[in-house]
Design a protein around this nucleic acid. Structure first.
Lengths: 193, 193
DNA sequence: CGAAAATTTGACATGACTCAACTGGAGTGG
DNA sequence: CCACTCCAGTTGAGTCATGTCAAATTTTCG
């Protein structure tokens, strides 16, 4: 169960974990299973945990006044899911996170994570690199969203996230791109010439 | 010149800097002045420095095939400006960063920064908090861009960034919001009822 | 097979863009 | 102090991309 996580940590840090450190990681991260459609986080709740996706797929979205879902993130294996704003500020979340497939998570509270970071330098290193990677990805996505047409955004998405296309239906991708499913359908039709 | 930076670091870390650490910070960050319109970074160049804005205002933007500028970030006092992707990956930047007002910066290379981080724990702490704040802000902006109409985005902008409204003209704000200056002008007119 | 979910299609509405013209400062230099 | 230019902002008319709504079709899966 924890192998993916350990591999992930070792991949993102210079020094491999000692076996004591591995044991500590395994003891601290709690397994949690979600069946398809179950929530990891519901709007209005404070997000108590960060979660590492061992297996499965989830989505994070807000719901507007008209009841329309706006998908802000998609997660599959080896992604970290949580609403950082809520976790850090202890404020009620504006987002829902639910399982799109049956999913296995490893979850950890912020307090536990801060504690682990004191004890395991490799974790601090990993988080810094994750933050960097994340900042870069967010920058790209923002830039694309602001500057590009729906069509171009979809092209870039196909280019950058082929894994997501396999795992999520079109209307989810459309929402992630900030367009309607009808528009995406037409864009795809158009692209077949 | 360096007071703002020292204050900034101390503000974001639990333990105040020792005087040796302060001296090290002062010795490492190099002052740089830009006159209005001068570039801190030009598209195609690798972004060698991170910069802390001591005084002034800058903007970061890309230019599309039609020659239209798409503003992705605005910076004023106490902001950090750089293209992280370019700095970290050593790739040519897709962005320009230039001074909108006469500006005073403190600049540092990535190597110097990594070195400082080894020597000054408070810096590591500060960067982690900055990354968190940044991640939260990016999340909000992305969410707003995907989910909201131009009008609502402008409202949120006025709410969240009143400082920018004082310092940048309307067409810059419009571009930052991903709309044209004409549309923003009409939105503002509309809002006066 | 049958029901639910996903996708496609058509007709129409609309928000935002484009382009061009006009207005009103804010400087600058003669 | 005026004439000139530059820059920012506004306005109008026409266009285009994308959204909306409703229905038909296809796919998935128990």
């Amino acid at each position: 169960m924890h192998e993916n996580l350990l591999a992930y940590i070792n991949h993102y840090s210079k020094n491999p974990l000692s076996s004591e450190e591995e044991a500590l990681v395994i003891a601290t991260f709690q397994p949690k299973k979600l069946r398809k459609k179950q929530y990891f986080l519901q709007e209005g709740d404070v997000c108590k945990y960060a979660s590492f996706v061992v297996k499965g797929a989830m989505r994070q979205y807000s719901v507007d006044d008209k009841g329309i879902e706006h998908i802000v993130h998609l997660f599959i294996e080896n992604y970290w899911a949580s609403d950082r704003e809520s976790t850090i500020m202890l404020t009620p979340s504006k987002y829902n996170i639910d399982a799109w497939e049956d999913t296995e998570l490893l979850i950890i509270t912020r307090a536990e994570m801060l504690d682990l970071m004191e004890k395991i330098p490799a974790l601090v290193e990993m988080i810094r690199l994750m933050d960097e990677r994340n900042a870069i990805a967010n920058q790209r996505r923002l830039s694309s969203t602001i500057s590009n047409s729906a069509e171009k955004r979809y092209e870039e998405f196909v280019e950058n996230h082929p894994q997501f296309i396999q795992r999520f239906p079109q209307h989810i991708i459309a929402s992630y791109l900030g367009i309607t499913k009808e528009t995406l359908s037409r864009i795809r039709k158009q692209a077949l010439k």
